[in-house]
Every structure is written in C-alpha cells, then in structure tokens.
Design a protein around this nucleic acid. Structure first.
Length: 217
DNA sequence: AACTCGGGGCA
DNA sequence: TGCCCAGAGTT
C-alpha cells in the first residue's frame, strides 16, 4: 500500500478477503484433528504443537485405542507414553504435560474439559492457541487461534502488526466479524498450507492477490 | 525476550 | 547436510 488505508478501507478489504476465502474454500467447517470427544481433541491439540496435523493423526489412531479414557492418560507411565508418541517430536515434554493435564482434568474438573481461558491455560501444555481451539470447537465461543500461519498471513494482509500472539488476537478481534472467526482460522490455515508459505509463497496463484499489500509482483 | 525441546519432510 | 514446521514452559 502506498498510503495508509483508513479504517473504512480496511474494513472493506477485510470483507473482500473473507468473501474470497469463502468462495475458494467454502463455508463448511472442518477440524483437521481426529477426535470424538473433547478430551481427545485437547490431547491431539497439545500434541500438535510444532508439528503437522497429519502426523498427529497418525499417532492418535493407535493412541486413543490404547488410552481410551482420561484416567488411562492420567495413570500412564511416562516412558511408555513417550514411546507411544515418539514420532511427533517434543515427545518428552508433551508426554509429561499430557499426564499432568489429565490428572488435573480428573482432580480439578471432574473429568471434563473446562471452557474458560483461565481454566484451560492452567492445564499443563495448554497455551492460548490450544485454549482457543477448544473454546472454538467444543464450546462454540468466538475464538481466534493464532498459530504461525495466522500470524504470518495476518501480518501480510495488514490485519495485525504485532508480534505477540495475544496482541495479534486482540487486533484481529477488532477487525474480523466474530461470526467468522472459527471459519476464518481454518481457511487461513488451509491457505498457509497450500499457497501462502512462509518461504516462497505462490502469490501469482493466490486468490487474495488483489487484496494483499504484501503480494509479489 | 531468549532459549529449549525434536523428529520428520524436503531441497 | 541444512532448514523449516498448526507452541508452550522455564529462566
């Protein structure tokens, strides 16, 4: 952008971007992580930190057969669980956090996954990103999931300029219509995996090209 | 704010 | 080989 755009201009551009995302990816909401229950989603998201959903899904297929309840995880042997999730990386910390998290779910929350940011982030291995996935998916709360894709693409589109994920969240809350938040998250992640790569993005093929100040060419 | 944890994918 | 990747915890 040559000159600073006004709030009205930004809002108009946001609307165009949302419409383009809807047209390209559709409005059907799909969660990438395999889960049948809230606690399974929680554990899957904890494991998804810094690795792809596809790899998490490979692990969870067997994992949720072996550990078919929160209590099984809460009483799991650390070394054994580490081995069970060995292929996803950061397995030591994640295994330790999963056990600690599930013990808390049993002792503090009656075996249920809580729904507030404070409660969720008090659990081991759960930060704002994971908490917002749960709030959005399980509790249908308006929640912006700021991962590296959302962070990068929000910066490129000029929707948020902060570096701190929590501040990005706040900036996006001001810009985006909240009924779109969950869908927007999924669409942005899809865009990030298919076109808007961190390195060598395919701007020429991007359907948001005309709305993106950072597009090449 | 910087550092650590980690294996898999890909050039 | 080297570099990147859907984060969170600790100092």
């Amino acid at each position: 952008m040559a000159k600073r755009e006004t709030k009205a201009e930004l809002k108009a551009r946001v609307d165009h971007v949302l419409a383009a995302l809807d047209q390209e990816y559709g409005t059907e909401y799909v969660c990438y992580l395999n889960h049948e229950t809230p606690w399974q989603l929680l554990i899957a998201v904890i494991m998804s930190a810094q690795c792809t959903d596809a790899r998490v899904n490979i692990v969870t297929a067997d994992l949720f057969k072996k550990y078919d309840s929160i209590e099984k995880f809460a009483n799991a042997d650390l070394k054994e669980l580490e081995n069970d999730i060995h292929s996803i990386g950061f397995y030591h910390m994640k295994a330790k956090n999963i056990i600690s998290c599930c013990r808390d779910l049993v002792t503090r929350f009656g075996g249920e996954v809580p729904g507030t940011m404070e409660e969720l982030t008090s659990l081991a291995g759960v930060g704002r990103k994971t908490a917002n996935v749960i709030r959005g998916n399980i509790y249908n709360e308006p929640s912006i999931v700021v991962d590296t894709h959302v962070k990068r693409i929000s910066r490129k589109l000029g929707f948020a300029k902060a570096e701190d994920p929590e501040k990005i969240e706040m900036e996006l809350m001001k810009v985006l219509p909240k009924e779109h938040w969950i869908l927007w998250n999924i669409q942005i992640i899809t865009l990030g995996r298919s076109i808007c790569f961190a390195r060598s993005p395919k701007c020429k093929e991007c359907f948001l090209r005309e709305y993106c100040p950072s597009a090449d060419q």
